[in-house]
Amino acid sequence: MHELSIATAIIERADELARADGTEAVSAVTVRVGELAGVVPDALGFAFEVARDGTALAGARLVVEQVPAQAWCGPCAEEFPVGMPPFFWCPRCDQPSSDLRSGRELEIAGIEPSPAPA
């Protein structure tokens, strides 16, 4: 399950970013996961819960934004969904495309600091 190593890397990086911003505690980490990134969002969520214990993100939740795979068709000048398994033929003009515009993302999109205690 490579999601555990990904979750660990997300926690480490989110902690670094939070500390650099002067944040002591994090309540949520938002990640963007592309349809073709090879990551199972539910498995990543489970792995995040396991890996966060004992870290500065122990109380944080993981928010996963799924990014659909989209390709660009030059002759039609349009984006089209690639789907899963991926199919890189334009549904409009029936031409192949090699221009993948989205779907491989695996990135931290945001970190939400925990509210300061009153």
Rank of each mutant, 00 (worst) to 15 (best):
M1D: 13
H2P: 04
I6D: 01
I6S: 00
A7I: 04
A7S: 05
T8A: 07
A9D: 01
A9L: 04
E12M: 09
R13K: 14
R13P: 03
R13L: 09
R13A: 11
D15A: 10
E16Q: 10
A18Q: 03
A20C: 05
G22H: 07
E24Q: 14
A25Y: 07
A25E: 10
S27Q: 15
S27L: 08
A28F: 09
A28L: 02
V29H: 00
V33C: 01
V33H: 03
G34K: 10
G34M: 01
G34N: 06
E35R: 09
L36M: 11
L36Y: 07
A37F: 00
A37D: 05
G38W: 06
V39S: 11
V39W: 04
V40S: 14
D42H: 15
F46H: 13
A47N: 06
A47K: 05
A47P: 00
V50Q: 03
A51Q: 12
D53I: 15
T55M: 10
L57F: 03
L57C: 13
A58Y: 03
G59P: 05
A60Y: 03
A60V: 02
R61W: 08
R61H: 08
V63Q: 07
Q66L: 12
Q66G: 14
V67Y: 12
V67L: 05
V67Q: 08
A69N: 07
Q70R: 15
Q70M: 12
Q70E: 12
A71F: 09
C73S: 14
C73A: 13
G74W: 12
P75Y: 04
C76D: 11
C76F: 04
A77Q: 14
E78Q: 15
P81V: 11
V82E: 05
M84L: 15
M84N: 08
P85A: 10
P85F: 09
P85N: 04
P86W: 07
P86M: 08
F87H: 15
F87C: 12
W89G: 15
P91R: 11
R92Q: 12
C93E: 13
P96W: 11
S98R: 06
S98D: 14
S98Y: 06
L100N: 05
S102N: 09
G103N: 04
G103M: 01
G103P: 03
E105P: 01
E107S: 12
I108A: 00
I108F: 00
G110E: 05
E112Y: 05
E112Q: 05
A118D: 14
A118R: 15
